[in-house]
Design a protein around this nucleic acid. Sequence first.
DNA 1: GTCTATACTTAGATAGAC
DNA 2: GTCTATCTAAGTATAGAC
Lengths: 199, 199
Amino acid sequence: MPEKRYGSTRGKILRAAAKLFSKSGYHRVTMREIAQDSEINAASIYHYFPSKADILKSLYAFYSAELHKALPDLHALLRLAETDPPHEVLMKAEFHFDQEARDFLDQILITAAREISADSESERFIRENIFAPTENIIKPLLQRMVELGRIQPLDIETLLTILVYYCFSAAALNHSPFGNKPEKYQSDLSFIFSFIKPM
Amino acid sequence: MPEKRYGSTRGKILRAAAKLFSKSGYHRVTMREIAQDSEINAASIYHYFPSKADILKSLYAFYSAELHKALPDLHALLRLAETDPPHEVLMKAEFHFDQEARDFLDQILITAAREISADSESERFIRENIFAPTENIIKPLLQRMVELGRIQPLDIETLLTILVYYCFSAAALNHSPFGNKPEKYQSDLSFIFSFIKPM
DNA sequence: GTCTATACTTAGATAGAC
DNA sequence: GTCTATCTAAGTATAGAC
């Protein structure tokens, strides 16, 4: 969780902001609301963050750092691709955050998904944290598996679009009335991967 | 297009609003910007719409009316399902708006996708215009096809999730750097439908 | 580091002339 | 129906005491 120390003021502000942003959207949330929810005076927020925009920026930075830590090792996966069943390798390529940070990180993703294309910071965030990881891990894995003759040739680009679009929706709609349960997320991924036929 | 008459003031306001909302998001756009873009005085907008929120509401109403006109006839499709190749019937179930209105309608969808879960009006809009049509047409079609023994049994619920999530992303990311070209939309759908194996 | 009070700006909306 | 001028509220941010 942000700042490690659970009760830190900066951490409380970030958690309140993420919660409120994800629920109502960045623009609807006021500094006064963030203050109220984090039980701190509105003026004091400016002791920790120069601006409201900077709170969002800090949330993105935190998420990116966590993602970086959670990313699977591509080289290890490429080696596994030579011996292990293709579907197992692909499911291992999915990264998971620890349950404790999960809700908080989800909220950041929801917020970013909404600001996409209105705010270049958010657009870059989505690119680097949803689109790029899939491109950079699943794509080379599939290419390698085809090369090794371990799976049947397939339209990799289209599969990636479906996969990434699914992930984007899952992120954007998480905790909304249209959101999936976490278990369903896993089984949906398996369904998409079932396009990939082992030799 | 709104109000049919292309040059109508009300129509100009709606088109400007949809364009700006889709680009920057509802909250970032000011009445003054809408006025400037539609080449009308800001105060005059209030002659046509009681409030900014009402402009959005009117956009949603317009979209829903157009969708209703474009929806395919389920009963006709169910009859086709008895005789025609399953994939062809499914592709026919996709509705298309005329090219003229397309961009405008896309912008409304983008706007709504962003406001989802922050604004109940927008949430209902997405439910009725993205989720419901798929549920109400593709689902009974697939069920009927299985019943008729024309396709192999499959996990219909999961397929619908993938399909609807794809459609949501395609709508939300349209005209963004992550958006697909219209041709790709068709081929992606075919890819998803290729999960469905004819008998 | 935290507070009270307040400055400054923006944006939705209205009044009322033409 | 369209305009100019203006009101009002809300929201970001700062000053400065403690």
